[in-house]
């Protein structure tokens, strides 16, 4: 997946005003947007050249569900974010069953849409890629090594797992209880307070990037890429 492709979004939306607006906000957020107004146009398009598809379900002619079914039938795994004005849970469930990755209910805020698109585009990179980059931090998953800039930093197993768990969801705090359960060694560390000890050691090892590793009100930790 090339970085260029990740920045390209296919928007399928029949409403002129909304389409224009969504396109403008996504463009502003740094994406390149191809906008299609009709379902049959969407059927003819090649979804694989896009990083993400924003698909309205209420389209004249061929509906959004049909478009989705068609794409998934082509074994295309491009993430699809569905837009719907329906609050009916059955429709969401059906869309998710057909292979939609996420949905947004109208009305939504442009910032909300951008956040959802970003979250969706970031995730496959974190899961599939061999290494995860958060600002100047780079986690090599297979070698289980951390690089701050070009400098390699030695981490214990717990420290690496802790950082990896946070790096998978940059900007979102991970709950303490979950970290204690999934990262700590139950035999050696027990739970709770030892987590803080590991975090403070990790902070020392991160040096000037320690600001990235933030404590959220005693309920969780977060890796903030922009800090």
């Amino acid at each position: 997946m090339t970085p260029d492709k990740l920045k390209t979004i296919l928007l399928v939306e029949d409403d002129d005003k909304l389409g224009r607006q969504v396109r403008s906000h996504l463009t502003e957020a740094g994406f390149e947007v191809d906008w299609l107004r009709h379902g049959h146009d969407a059927l003819a398009a090649d979804p694989s050249q896009y990083g993400l598809i924003v698909l309205d379900l209420m389209l004249p002619g061929t509906g959004g569900m049909d478009v989705l079914k068609h794409y998934r039938g082509q074994r295309c795994d491009v993430p699809v974010l569905v837009l719907s004005a329906k609050t009916d849970a059955a429709i969401k469930v059906r869309a998710l069953d057909l292979g939609a990755d996420d949905y947004m209910t109208k009305p939504f805020w442009p910032g909300e849409l951008v956040a959802r698109v970003n979250a969706r585009l970031r995730r496959p990179l974190a899961n599939a890629g061999d290494s995860i980059e958060i600002g100047r931090l780079r986690l090599d998953q297979s070698a289980r090594r951390l690089f701050v800039g070009e400098e390699s930093v030695d981490l214990t197993r717990v420290e690496f797992d802790l950082l990896l768990a946070l790096a998978r969801r940059p900007g979102v705090a991970v709950e303490r209880g979950w970290l204690a359960e999934h990262v700590l060694d139950p035999e050696r560390d027990g739970t709770g307070r030892t987590l803080d000890v590991h975090v403070s050691r990790l902070r020392r090892k991160l040096g000037d990037r320690a600001v990235c590793l933030q404590t959220v009100w005693g309920v969780g930790y977060r890796l903030e890429p922009d800090a």
Partner: peptide, 26 residues
């Protein structure tokens, strides 16, 4: 929770309110 936070974050940001999710990894 991510969707709900994303929904209220833009308005919160205008108001200067930080809406922070703290979620499990799974």
């Amino acid at each position: 929770c991510e969707r709900v936070v994303a929904r209220h974050m833009p308005v919160g940001r205008e108001k200067g309110v930080r809406v922070e999710p703290v979620l499990p990894g799974d």
